[in-house]
């Protein structure tokens, strides 16, 4: 479903701020794979997601989604393949538009937007049902501006927007990092449920090793713009945090520097 082939990306090339963010990154995800991504700050996790989403063009290499090379497509054209949830709850939704309007914009992702009404009546009924399943009481606030909602509620809305039409690939970029632990686990649970119910292919970046182990059928660890660990199947099921730390030391040849890694083990 997703194929990343030998992708390189360097920021601020030729300046003192030069940063080699992706160095020969390659990854293949099969349909229905739910892959968690861990790694320290600056390892290239978010950069990988941005390369897939087309926030900027890559220097070399290819991104292939569902058999189509999208490397040359700008961000808004790739959007039809992707559902995205960001770290900052403010990023995914329009604060001064209603919940229903936000959902309607997402429902038209990749479709031609014409001069018919932006939110149709039958859509509202559908959205109401969808929101009801979330159990957050949002179904009665469809005409509220999203800006009035809490961070967790906004992330839940963004999650629904990302999956309102089944995306080829769901990109979750530390989407629970800005939430309090209780809300974070609720949003994570919701993500799990949506991914399972729709059999989505997903990439989830997280700083939390336990979450990375507990969710999904695959796990990758990144360091210096490359994947240094790729675990799946039975091995992933048996994985513990200690295993992960040991494996990291083996692969990278250095002891894990937790200050730099900023990985949370609990």
């Amino acid at each position: 479903m997703l194929e990343i082939k030998n992708v390189y990306k360097t920021f601020n090339k030729g300046t003192v701020n030069e940063k080699r963010a992706l160095c020969g990154l390659s990854l293949t995800l099969n349909e229905g794979d739910f892959c968690t991504v861990i790694g320290g700050n600056g390892a290239g996790k978010s950069t990988m997601l941005n390369a897939i989403a087309g926030v900027w063009p890559v220097d070399s290499g290819a991104v292939i989604i569902d058999g189509k090379d999208v490397s040359k497509l700008p961000e808004h054209k790739r959007a039809s393949y992707l559902g995205r949830v960001f770290q900052d709850p403010m990023t995914g939704t329009v604060a001064n538009m209603e919940i229903a309007e936000n959902l309607a914009i997402a429902a038209r992702r990749g479709k031609r937007r014409g001069l018919s009404w932006g939110v149709k009546r039958e859509e509202k009924v559908k959205y109401r049902e969808m929101l009801k399943e979330f159990g957050l009481g949002l179904e009665d606030r469809m005409t509220s501006k999203v800006g009035l909602l809490s961070g967790g509620q906004r992330q839940a809305i963004t999650l629904l927007m990302a999956t309102i039409q089944k995306p080829k690939l769901l990109l979750l970029d530390e989407h629970t990092a800005a939430l309090d632990p209780k809300t974070a686990s609720k949003v994570l649970e919701l993500s799990d449920k949506i991914i399972a119910e729709n059999n989505l292919t997903a990439l989830m970046v997280t700083h939390n090793m336990k979450d990375a182990i507990a969710h999904g059928n695959r796990l990758i660890m990144m360091n210096d713009g490359k994947i240094i660990l790729n675990i799946s199947g039975e091995e992933k099921k048996k994985l513990t945090v200690d295993d992960l730390l040991k494996k990291f030391e083996q692969v990278s040849g250095s002891k894990i520097d937790n200050d730099r890694m900023l990985l949370s083990t609990d």
């Binding site: 808004h76 959007a79 960001f86 990023t91 309007e101 992702r109 990749g110 937007r113 001069l115 932006g118």
Partner: peptide, 24 residues
């Protein structure tokens, strides 16, 4: 209030989200 007009409002208020939702 139309689909097209909504994209202008979302572009003004959140360009990052608009791009992610396929809006040019």
């Amino acid at each position: 209030g139309t689909e097209q007009g909504s994209t202008i409002r979302s572009t003004g208020s959140n360009p990052a989200m608009s791009k992610a939702q396929g809006i040019n």
